[in-house]
Amino acid sequence: MNSDTHLDGNSIGSLLQDLFGREMTDQRACCDACGAINPLATARVYVDAPGHVVRCAICGTVVLVAVTVPTGVRISFQALRWVELAP
């Protein structure tokens, strides 16, 4: 988890928008592992993999993985306790 290799949740803005149909980087999410509540934009995003690995900025737990496969983009929710949709 070298700090020079990751981006942040701003970089998955369009992926999240594809998923939820609205802007999401400003929305709060809760890490299922440590309970930290932060905007999705602040998550650490690793793009070295064949896709995106999203980790909690506080404890480093993998919360979401998005991988491009021949049939589309496969999104796996690993440790998101909740995501908030502010009106």
Partner: peptide
């Protein structure tokens, strides 16, 4: 091109 994207920054 598609966008605009982002609401936090």
């Amino acid at each position: 091109l598609r966008g605009p994207i982002g609401g936090y920054f």
